[in-house]
Write a protein that binds this DNA or RNA. Structure first.
Lengths: 115, 115
DNA sequence: GCTTATAGCTACTGATTCAGTAGCACAAGG
DNA sequence: CCTTGTGCTACTGAATCAGTAGCTATAAGC
């Protein structure tokens, strides 16, 4: 299993250590952003989170949660389940412009009707 | 091979069709963002681009370029090589806040020195 | 104590995706 | 013809993901 991407170190897809590369490696892994997204609803248990994520396989969910915890983006309070840390909240905020871009992109794509 | 993620359709990691999910599927694929990033230097040939990307395997580079072209983010002018479209430029701009977040994240990680 | 239920997680198998190397077809220059 | 450069494909093996089953632990009910 690949190491949790860490700014300053080489990651999958780049050896420059640029923080953005580490972030993209971390967030680009399957379900990573989705988990983040679903956690905006507040703290929830492993199983509840899994249910929100289309019953993703626990293998992957556990892996993503471990990475996100390791990166200080998600916290696990025993009994209360998983929740975003302050860092996680600011990450969600930083993703907003990408969300906006995606919306504009979707609108254009609908007009062009690619393929 | 998986289809190019398209807003409005189910993608890897989500079936909601939310544009952000399609964008993340597209950009989360290995080397996708890196290619975008390296294209900010201006138009360049397939091989030049490949050299900038740590000699990524042409299989993957070609696949990512096809997806990005298919999504209207990258354009290929015969003779001039590959370049960002207007859409691609705005995507780069939308990624700036994530870049900032990553920088702050890296700074915190350095302080905490995880692991 | 025994059953039932929930939570968190691990094991195992098979599919998808990525990585790495080689090499093709085409065109320009000499 | 021979070399150089470009865009790309084929093929093989490795990493990652997906899907199902089930284990351990804690707590409630009886």
């Amino acid at each position: 299993m690949a190491a949790t991407p860490k700014p300053g170190a080489a990651v999958r897809g780049s050896r420059t250590g640029r923080p953005i590369m580490a972030a993209l490696d971390l967030l680009g892994r399957r379900w990573a952003l989705r988990v983040l997204w679903e956690l905006r609803h507040g703290a929830q248990s492993f199983r509840a989170l899994r249910a929100r994520c289309d019953e993703v396989s626990p293998t992957v969910l556990n892996q993503r949660l471990a990475e996100l915890r390791d990166s200080g983006i998600v916290a696990h309070a025993p009994g209360a389940g998983y929740a975003l840390s302050a860092e996680g909240e600011s990450l969600l905020a930083a993703l907003a412009p990408l969300n906006d871009w995606a919306a504009r992109w979707a609108a254009k794509g609908a007009r062009k009707k690619r393929a």
